[in-house]
């Protein structure tokens, strides 16, 4: 793919990390604006607050309020475009490890604090 249509090929696209683990979707795109050059894609954002911002400011306010109970450290995860390794019809592959990013905070917390305590929840079983 040589030409990228931001709305069609980037926004809402599935993200996978370097090990092909699904780590979320592109919830927002950040452009870099300068006076003497055309806008350039700088990075993209992941997180429920980014989605809420797209829907309605009140939903954003509600999510910001709910964040006091969130285990996710960074509500708005920003990934630099330079981390993009591959863009396909199905996914955008990154060169990072998803499990070490805020995108996996909930997955990790639920795995350790809920799944492991349920019957058959331990991997070694």
């Amino acid at each position: 793919m040589h030409e990228l249509d931001l709305a069609r090929d980037v926004m809402d696209k599935q993200l996978i990390d370097r090990d092909c683990t699904e780590m979320g979707r592109i919830d927002g795109v950040l452009l870099e604006l300068s006076d003497d050059a055309p806008p350039r894609v700088d990075s993209f954002e992941l997180g429920f607050v980014v989605l809420a911002e797209r829907v309605h400011p009140r939903l954003l306010a509600l999510l910001e309020w709910l964040r006091r109970w969130s285990v996710r450290k960074t509500a708005r995860q920003i990934v630099q475009w330079s981390a993009v390794e591959e863009v396909t019809e199905r996914y955008i592959k990154l060169s990072i490890d998803a499990t070490e990013t805020p995108a996996f905070d909930w997955e990790r917390w639920l795995g350790m604090n809920v799944v492991e305590h349920l019957p058959g929840g331990k991997e070694e079983e």
Binding site: E22, L110, V115, E116, G121, E123
Partner: peptide, 20 residues
């Protein structure tokens, strides 16, 4: 919808949000 890991063949530990 949210791009989480999913699959009935994965261990619940590997897709905790899907399983829960």
């Amino acid at each position: 919808t949210f791009g989480w890991n999913w699959g009935e063949d994965l261990h619940p530990r590997e897709d905790a949000r899907f399983s829960l």
